[in-house]
Structure formats: structure tokens, C-alpha cells
Design a binder for these strands. Structure first.
Length: 315
DNA sequence: AATAAGGTCAACCGCAACAAG
DNA sequence: GCTTGTTGCGGTTGACCTTAT
């Protein structure tokens, strides 16, 4: 889409030459007098357009192209809960991020969440839901949620933790269904909001993505109450998930990407037990089970009992 | 391989606040 | 005090890219 001329105003994507002109202007006069750029005939862009280009793309020290780090996500979640959609204000707490970045990040996650919730609310067909879940957990890669636990589908992501922080003593799950959400300790540690310090930024490589989600290790998002009406195999699985030592079933895993250098335990046992739910304990366990295939091994009715927490906007 | 669906990002629009004349 | 211009902000859109089917 090439910018068209409309009363001499150029719109659309910026060319490198235009950026250069804009940068020169800022060098000479500073980031102001945007309208004079056009009045001087330097560019056929409105002052607003020039300013936007500078703020969002040309300003120094921008983290262009970097996904939000775990810490940044947390900050956004927390500050959104605190300030609402005050993106510019929130962005001031995130070095290198613009209000547009924050806005896009938030709306993207909102859309994703809405879609997931819509799907899970209208159909109990687990295959479809699982696709959504996997999609969603994929989105959490590079953020922080540990993808292996389906129970965290709605709880480890930032929105949910935020929502929960606000309101989650209410039942987040299921009308007549009986899963109850137990409020987590706020995932947003106030210490993380020591916003004067530089936020840790880490771009997760594919190999790191799953480990990156481990921070929730000590924070089982909700407890599944025993009165649930799951199939026997689901009950077996869920009973295991309730085991306070569940994370000890995991092996070693490098979570240095989280910034604290901690070694967290993720191992094959959980995957094995889930596999055994399906295949039977006497069958040979497929050691190829990975976090990505993990959901495939859940009994399907597990997914039928998950309903959305309130969205932050509903608070 | 083709297509659909979903996700990301850049940019525009409208409105409000503010300042200068 | 009013008008006009500028700046800043939040919402929205559409193009492009990626992933799933």
C-alpha cells in the first residue's frame, strides 16, 4: 500500500528517505515543531504523522522487534490493572517501549484470550479446544507460563493473573461445574515493580521457550476440588496434579532466562504419568512426549470444565 | 501446495488538553 | 475569554507474516 497523495499529504508506510529527513530535523531542532516539517516543504507528512514516526520508530533506544520479556509483561499486566488503558503512562515504566507497543501487546493478548474463551465456552470438543490451548500456550512462550500444565491455561498468562489478582476469589470456572479457583499469590511481585531499575529483557530462543515458562513452578494456579465430575482417568490425573510434590517429578531445567539463574525441576515423570493415563500403566511410556504434545495426553473431559476468568475489562 | 485463520505491527483517526496570539 | 494551532493519547484499521488445516 503506497501512500497516496491527498491534498498534498502523504500517508502510508515511511520510506528511508523520509526517515532521514525526519531524523535530520530532530537533530537540528529537537523532537518538536513537527508541523514545520511540512510547512518547510521537507516532507509531505502531517506533523502528527512525523511525531508518531519519531516516537514509535526513530527514537533512540527503542526495542523494535523485540518481544515483550517476562518482566515487561508482568509490568504491563500490573500497571494496566492499576491505571487502566493508560498506555502512554504504562510505557513510561518500560524503557524502550512505546505506548503503541504496549497497546498492541495488550490488545493482541486480549484478542487471543477472547478467542480461546469463546471457543471453550461454545464447544466441549476437546480437539478444538486443545488447539486453542496450544495456540495460547504458544503465545505464552517467551513470556512465562509453563506450557505443560493445562491447568495453567487460564491462570499462568498475564491477563488471568492480573484478573485473578483483582477478583479471583470468585469462581473462575464453570457455572454448574465445580472447579474452584483458589487465589494465587499475586504473580506480579511488587518487587518486580521496582520500576526505577532496568527491566531484565530476554529474548527467548526456541530452545529456551519452555523453560522460560517455569516461573510458575511454585505457584500452582488453582486447585482442583475433588467434587468434580471427571472421568476416572481425569480424576487420576487431577489427583496427581494436586500432589504438592508434583514439581519434584520434574527434572532439571535451566531457567536462567528468567533472570535469576535458578535451576528448576522439570523431568519426564509428569509426562509419563500423563501418558500412562491414556495408554495404561503397563504400557511402555513414550519418552518422546514433549511439552508441546503434553496436552494431547490429557483426558478430553479435562478441557470441558474450564471456563474463563473474568477479563480485566470486566472488572 | 493451497488456503484459511490467527497474530503482529505500523499507521491513521478523532478527540482532548494545552499554549500562543 | 475566544480562536487557532500543536501535541499527546487511545482506539481502530489494514497489510503483512506465520501457523494450522
Amino acid at each position: 500500500m503506497e501512500g497516496k497523495r491527498d491534498e498534498g499529504i502523504r500517508k502510508g508506510p515511511w520510506k528511508a528517505e523520509e526517515d532521514e529527513v525526519l531524523l535530520n530535523h530532530v537533530k537540528k531542532y529537537g523532537p518538536r515543531d513537527w508541523s514545520s516539517i511540512r510547512s518547510k516543504g521537507l516532507l509531505q507528512r502531517t506533523g502528527k504523522s512525523c511525531r508518531l514516526r519519531w516516537v514509535n520508530k526513530l527514537r533512540p533506544n527503542l526495542k523494535n522487534g523485540c518481544k515483550f520479556s517476562l518482566e515487561e509483561e508482568r509490568v504491563v499486566i500490573e500497571l494496566q490493572a492499576q491505571f487502566g488503558n493508560k498506555w502512554a503512562r504504562i510505557a513510561t515504566y518500560l524503557p524502550g517501549r512505546t505506548d503503541n507497543d504496549v497497546k498492541n501487546f495488550w490488545s493482541s493478548r486480549q484478542k487471543r484470550l477472547a478467542r480461546i474463551l469463546q471457543t471453550s465456552g461454545t464447544s466441549s470438543k476437546s480437539q478444538k479446544i486443545k488447539r486453542e490451548v496450544q495456540s495460547y500456550h504458544g503465545c505464552c512462550q517467551g513470556s512465562n507460563s509453563f506450557p505443560a500444565l493445562e491447568a495453567q491455561k487460564f491462570s499462568s498468562s498475564s491477563e488471568e493473573s492480573s484478573a485473578r489478582a483483582q477478583s479471583c476469589s470468585s469462581s473462575c470456572i464453570g457455572n454448574s461445574d465445580l472447579i474452584k479457583m483458589v487465589p494465587l499469590p499475586d504473580l506480579v511481585n511488587p518487587k518486580l515493580l521496582n520500576l526505577e531499575t532496568n527491566l531484565i529483557h530476554h529474548e527467548f530462543s526456541p530452545a529456551e521457550k519452555h523453560p522460560s515458562c517455569i516461573e510458575s513452578q511454585t505457584q500452582i494456579p488453582f486447585i482442583l476440588q475433588p467434587e468434580l465430575t471427571f472421568s476416572p482417568e481425569s480424576q487420576d490425573l487431577l489427583a496427581r496434579l494436586e500432589d504438592p510434590n508434583i514439581f519434584e517429578m520434574f527434572g532439571q531445567l535451566d531457567a536462567s532466562g528468567l533472570g535469576n539463574g535458578s535451576q528448576l525441576s522439570i523431568g519426564p515423570q509428569l509426562f509419563e504419568l500423563v501418558g500412562s493415563c491414556r495408554t495404561g500403566a503397563n504400557e511402555k511410556i513414550d519418552n518422546s512426549i514433549t511439552p508441546d504434545s503434553f496436552f494431547d495426553d490429557f483426558p478430553t473431559d479435562v478441557f470441558d470444565h474450564i471456563e474463563p476468568p473474568p477479563s480485566p475489562s470486566e472488572r
